[in-house]
Design a protein around this nucleic acid. Structure first.
Lengths: 107, 107
DNA sequence: AATTAATATCGTAATATTGCGATATTAAGA
DNA sequence: TCTTAATATCGCAATATTACGATATTAATT
């Protein structure tokens, strides 16, 4: 037990859930919001801003990267992260389309 | 360890994350989609449709109810669930506004 | 009153997530 | 070359989530 039974759901359902899931942590919301406040890209300031250990922040960044939502660019020994706007818009559209499609008449 | 450190994030970040989190499971996506295909409200058909144990489905329904997303109406010994359209639209707007606000110029 | 059907809740096992210290790794700078 | 700074990854502990059987609960039906 304890495993999500992905097999019994279809691709769309699993993908949608995965998108929502990655966005379902306040640290990851905070990271995205913080990056968006900076005109230029960010690096280790994220760690200081967020207030979690460096290892933890790195892990959250990894999950955001897994959606393609963040791009990282190496600048010497620093990493510069930014939001991939194309993916961002894609995801927004996808979630919206879920919301629109799933509207229903109530009781 | 293992506890999400909600204290270090603000109300908005925690609430947004919570919304995303509840939607971040394929069974809950499937439940919402299934309810939306029925004109009238649904009951225990959900259990049969989803293919998870009754107890598990009931738990997922509870989480959706925790957002106010589902309304349950008692009809004899059956429960009739439907999507609360007002809350549905609210959440859609809220997530959209997050997506719009968090747009940013990239690297 | 007893039975049955529909649902919720409890308890628990399996697994996943969160968070962090310790440890790589890599590149700039002394 | 040695040091330092920035980041990623590993390993683990604490907690949360997922799933389900068993057991309530409640209302219709017999």
């Amino acid at each position: 037990m304890g495993v999500t039974k992905s097999q019994i759901f279809d691709k769309e359902q699993n993908e949608l859930a995965q998108l929502f899931k990655v966005l379902g942590h306040p640290a990851r919301i905070a990271i995205l919001q913080y990056i968006s406040t900076q005109n230029a890209c960010i690096c280790n300031d994220i760690v200081e801003e967020i207030g979690l250990a460096q290892a933890t922040v790195s892990q959250h960044l990894k999950e955001l990267k897994s959606l393609g939502l963040l791009q990282g660019e190496i600048e010497g020994k620093k990493m510069c992260y930014c939001i991939n706007l194309e993916v961002w818009n894609d995801i927004q559209l996808r979630l919206n389309s879920f919301f629109i499609t799933t509207k229903t008449n109530c009781c």
